[in-house]
Each structure stands twice: as structure tokens, then as C-alpha cells.
Design a protein around this nucleic acid. Structure first.
Lengths: 368, 368
DNA sequence: TTCTATTGTGAGAACGTTCGCACAATCGGA
DNA sequence: TCCGATTGTGCGAACGTTCTCACAATAGAA
């Protein structure tokens, strides 16, 4: 009980027992170079006998490869990141890679700190959901120092790194079009819409309509608003700014306030579009507490298909993101780069699927 | 573009630029030993100028500590593991530790493979939800080789390692008692109940009643059944074996079959107890499709408090596990062991909370 | 003065691998 | 016979740190 680690069996001891040099033992165990069948057997047997376990640190130090990819997620606890992570981990495992996980809580400082730690641990590649799409010096620096990066869910402006995102505009626009087709003209939307660096929301709406914004540079919730606006424009309808609940922060409380405000006003919307899972859960809660019936009092389409949406009384029509696929795609991209694959920056934009259920119907008489 | 890594700035170069030995530079940057203020300044400035970033691999190789803890979860995608992982990651981060993640899908082979990889990567400690509670040679070996282990959710028999679990018996027994108190006498239960090595379910029930089973050695779903039986026994009631839906495997399909079978039989139970999140979701789905009303047609208590349970029409009464706390506790335990803390094996058994909502009422006339 | 403690420095050996190199032995073909 | 290719081996130098020494300089105490 005196010594803490009985772990100490190195390749040297294996070599000694097998009666060969460490180089030969290394060749057998590492699977590189030539070795005679005879020695192969001897070394393997000795390794077995001693319970030899290679020290990947030492190997990595010399090869410069750790076979580890770092992941900076927002919050693993959310189904969104959990599913993505699952996809990443599966692909990584299949290639013998480990996954070093951190979460940023969408806080820049924490992201910087996390990236720092991961780089010091010499990860071979980084998958990150960046929380600041404009600055992010740390990511530029990491990329410049040669660490492959794959961005997920959103993209940093001007960062030369691959990305995997969802066609948020298309998904939102699809849903809104669906509601418009059902006859709705007053469609509410609740979304985070935290920061937009170029001005207030009026400006944003105007600029989308005049076509001077590239959605690729936006945060998801803004992209979804973009889709909302686009769908209206395509239908030749004006936007009523009051129907857009801008929560401003990713919190249950703020979301609840915004949603309740939107749904309890005298001339409330006939349909609601929630821009992410948090908003959907809050909205559902608000709808229940206001005693509104879906879809008679209110039609509803939610971004993110959560498990409960399928077994509510009328099921909730929802936009399903291919989350594990996004994770898998990002892992494949990063592994390809690690494997030395060159070529153009890759920007994969995945498509949603719309799970049609029972939460949409035409607006009821006297309320349309 | 020719060289892949511009990363190459080592402590030697920093030392050279500062005009000191690598030993001195190491002392400044590593924060050990003595250095003059003057040299401290010079070294720091040089490090800054060169953009020096320590290589933790090299440090770990020599110190024997990686400041990394390995985690083997069942499936990160499930809210159960996701929340636990969140707790682990938070505590780890606060201490400057990284988290290396793998999932086993509750498959022994995969768990063995994962543990192997983690050990080769020289993790300082291992947090694992073991999928085999009886054999698990790999865990015994790991423990023997000096790697601290914390078991989570369940315990391997005879493995000397700390653990963090939930009082599953107590939680189940509480819920069943609640239902019995409401007047229910035919309480159904659906649970995984995959393997029990000592015989069939009759035997299990008998042995629980005669008191010859130590619940600590059981898998959670069996512990929950244990609680179910205990509560009945305490109330002086016999167990109707037909009310126990043994799914046998952790799959939606099997769960659905078992649940539908249980709920559609002529003399169906007046109350239902679901033993985990999967069973709850499936049960909810089955209840909806059978067009049963909660709580008039059926009372319901679920193990695991999922977000949707609070905003269904009548809320679902549920057992909430303190998941992030379990993660935090396990991380604290492992860090303490890594820090060299000796002493007795620790087995923390956390308590559930029962979230009372509207899914329980007295059985209705003609059905009791 | 002389001793001991404190503070500081650098050379060089770890840590456990992989890798370059030199060197052999064997084989087949010209 | 000689040659080159193929297969196999061991020595020792990496990799980028930390850590053990040996050794100084200074200061205060005896």
C-alpha cells in the first residue's frame, strides 16, 4: 500500500523480458517497421505477462498527435448539444479518437479559457460552437497555429475554418409559409435575438427586406427571424414588429415574460412560432397557464423537435434538426483535416425536416 | 503553407530569448522553485512575445499527472447522463481538470474498450456507470493498478471504489406508498429489469419478501422493483406478478409492447409506476393512443422528472433525481482521491425529491 | 570568523515512447 | 561472384517538460 501506482510497466521491461531491444519491442507493440515472427510472439507474450499498457502521452509527445479532439459546447445538458456530442463521440470512437469536452455556457471568457486548455493538452482538432461571431481572436490564433477547427451551429466572420450549420432561414421560412398558407396573418414569434451589432430590430427588418444582409454571418435566432421576414415578404405581407417577442437573453424567466406579454395582449397573434427548445417549453407552459387551446385558440410551430411534442394531445408540429448527423458531419470534417486533407474550406449546411402534427389549423372566426 | 504546425515555440526558445537556462524559465512558467524578480519579468516577457503555450503532454509525462478525468457514460444523449456529465464537467473545470468522455451504450465490450483507451491516455481518475455489476475484471484491474474510480448510478460487487448512487428503493417505495394511500390496490409497473443473475422474477419477489437480498448490489430497475415490493409488504398487501411489466431490454419498441399489453388488458391497473425516463415517455405515448385520461382512468407516477411533465394538462407527479448533484459529488470524490486523500471507501446515496403534480387521484368507482 | 539557512542558478538526467541511422543477414537474379 | 532489394535488429537521439543536483551568493546568527 506504500506506492501509489503499481502501473509502472514500460516498454523497456517488456523488451527486457522478451530479450530484445526496446526498439524491437516498440516496433511490435506500435505496429511499425519490420519484426520477425519469432520476436513478435516473444514480445507479445511478455507484454501480456506483464500487463503492459502503452503510455499514449509519450507516444503523442514524439508523434505530435494525440488522437484527441476537443469540443467546446454551449451546455451539454441541453438536448441540442447532447445529441451533437453523441454524433461526434461515435465517429471519433470509430477512428480511435478520444473526445475532450468543455462547455462555455455561451460565455466568451469561458470559451477562451476552454480553448486554451484544450490547446495546451495538444488536441489534434477543435470542434466549437463559437459564442462570438465577430471577434474571436483566440480562434483565429488557434487556426493560425495550425490546429484544424470546425465550427458548429454558427460561424465566426472571416475565420477560415470549416463549418456545419443548419439552414435556419429555410427552416423558419418553411414553417411561416406553412402558417400563412393555413390563413394566419398575425403570426407571433419568440426568440432569443440577443446581440446584433449593426443596430436595432427595425433596422434589421428593413435591411433584410432591402436584401443587404448575408444570413450566413448571423446567429441562429437572427437567421430564424430572417426566415420569418423572408416568408412574409414572399407572400407580400408587411411585418408587424409588435408580433416579435425579443427575449434578449437565454433565460426561462425572460422568455416567460416575453411570451406571456405576447399571448395575453388583447389583439394577440393567431399563431406562434418559437425559435428554439427553451422558447418552446416556456411557450407550452404559458399556453397551459393561459388556458389556451391548441390549435383552436392558437396554432403553434416549434423549432427543435423535443420528445414530448409527439405525445401531447394534439401533437406539436415541429422543425427537427438532424443533430447527431451534425455532430457526425463535424467529426468527419475534423478527422479529414487531421488526416491532412487539404482543399477548400467546407461549409456544410444541413436541412431540417418538418414534423407535421396537429398544432396547426386555420385561424378561427372572429379572431382572424 | 509548407509546414503544418507553426506551433513550435518551446520553453527552450523562451529561455534563450530571456537569456536564462531552460531550468529557470521552467521555474517561472511552471511556478515552482525560486527565481529572482528580474528573471521572472524577463521570462514572462519573452513568453508573451513568442506566444508561448506550455505542452501539457510533456509536463504530464514527467509529473505522472494529466489533470484529466475519464468518464464512461451510458449514453450522453439521454438527459440522465447529460445532466450528470454537466455536474462533473463543472467541478472538474473549477479545478483545472479536463474531461475525457466516452459512452458505452451499456455494452460491456464497449465499456472495456473505453476504459482501456482512457487508461492509456493516462487519466488521473475514472468515473464510470458500470454496465456489469458482477464481473468487471477490467475495473478491478484498473483499481488495482492505482487508478481511482468512482462508480455512478450502480455498483460493481466487491469492487473497492467509491460510489454515488440514488436511494432507488426509497424513491420507489415512497411513490408506491403514495399511490396506496390514495386507495390504489392494483398498481402496474413497467421497468427494464434486464438481468438478474439469481433466477426469475418469482424468485426475486420471494427473496425480497423473505429479506435475503441486499438491494445495494442490484441494478437500478431492480432496486425500484424492490421498493415497489417493500411498499406493498409494508402495507400488508400481496404482489400480483402480472402487474409487473418486465421490458427486458432498454428499447422503445419492447417498452411499448409491454406497456400496451399491461394497459389494454381487461382488468388493467388503476395506477401506473414507470421506472425510468424511457418508460415514462413510452407510457405517455401509450396512454394517449389508448385514449386514457389521467388521472381519472389511470393515476401515474414517473421515475425521472422530465421537462414536459410539468406542463402537461394535469402535471405528472414524478421522482426527481438530483442529477447534476450526483455528477458534482462524483467529481468531488474522484478529485479528492486524486489529491491523495485516503480513508474508507465512500458510498454516497443521494435522496430523490417527489414532485407532486396532478396525475394521482383515488381510483374511480367500478374500477377499484 | 564560521556556520547555517535562504535564495537563486544552470547542467543534465529523467519520463516512455518513436524514429533515424548503421549494420547484418538472406535471397534471387545477372 | 557480385549486386541490390528486402527484412530484421539495436543504438542512441529526439519530443518538451520537470526535477535532482551541485554550486554560489548573501545574510544573519553564533
Amino acid at each position: 500500500m506504500a506506492d501509489k501506482r503499481a502501473d509502472k510497466v514500460t516498454i523497456t521491461e517488456v523488451a527486457k523480458l522478451a530479450g530484445v531491444s526496446t526498439a524491437t519491442a516498440g516496433r511490435v507493440l506500435g505496429g511499425y517497421g519490420y519484426t520477425s515472427e519469432e520476436n513478435k510472439e516473444k514480445v507479445r507474450r511478455s507484454a501480456e505477462a506483464l500487463g503492459y499498457r502503452p503510455n499514449l502521452l509519450a507516444r503523442s509527445l514524439i508523434t505530435g498527435k494525440t488522437k484527441t479532439i476537443g469540443v467546446v459546447a454551449g451546455d451539454i445538458q441541453s438536448p441540442f448539444y447532447a445529441s451533437i456530442l453523441r454524433g461526434i463521440a461515435d465517429v471519433a470512437r470509430a477512428q480511435g479518437f478520444g473526445v475532450l469536452l468543455t462547455n462555455s455556457d455561451e460565455l466568451l471568457d469561458r470559451e477562451i479559457e476552454a480553448v486554451q486548455l484544450l490547446l495546451e493538452k495538444q488536441i489534434d482538432g477543435l470542434i466549437v460552437a463559437p459564442c462570438d461571431t465577430s471577434g474571436s481572436q483566440h480562434l483565429h490564433a488557434a487556426a493560425a497555429s495550425g490546429c484544424p477547427i470546425v465550427q458548429i451551429d454558427r460561424r465566426v466572420n472571416g475565420l477560415s475554418a470549416d463549418s456545419v450549420t443548419l439552414d435556419n432561414c429555410g427552416a423558419a421560412s418553411d414553417s411561416i409559409t406553412q402558417l400563412l398558407a393555413a390563413g394566419h396573418r398575425r403570426i407571433g414569434m419568440v426568440a432569443e435575438l440577443e446581440r446584433w451589432e449593426f443596430g436595432d430590430m427595425e433596422t434589421f427588418i428593413d435591411r433584410v427586406i432591402e436584401g443587404s444582409i448575408d444570413p450566413a454571418s448571423l446567429f441562429p435566432s437572427w437567421q430564424r427571424l430572417f426566415g420569418y421576414i423572408e416568408a412574409h415578404r414572399a407572400a407580400g405581407l408587411l411585418i408587424d414588429r409588435n408580433l416579435i417577442g425579443r427575449v434578449g437573453t437565454y433565460s426561462v424567466k425572460a422568455a416567460r415574460t416575453a411570451t406571456m406579454e405576447l399571448l395575453s395582449r388583447p389583439n394577440r397573434p393567431t399563431a406562434l412560432f418559437t425559435a428554439d427548445g427553451l422558447m418552446s417549453a416556456v411557450a407550452m407552459d404559458a399556453i397551459t397557464s393561459l388556458d389556451l387551446q391548441i390549435p383552436t385558440d392558437l396554432s403553434l410551430i416549434c423549432f427543435d423537435d423535443l420528445d414530448w411534442m409527439s405525445f401531447l394531445k394534439p401533437g406539436i408540429t415541429a422543425i427537427a434538426q438532424p443533430l447527431t448527423e451534425m455532430g457526425e458531419a463535424s467529426a468527419r470534417l475534423i478527422l479529414a483535416r487531421i488526416g491532412g486533407e487539404g482543399g477548400e474550406e467546407q461549409h456544410q449546411v444541413l436541412k431540417h425536416t418538418l414534423a407535421l402534427r396537429g398544432s396547426v389549423m386555420a385561424p378561427q372566426a372572429g379572431r382572424a
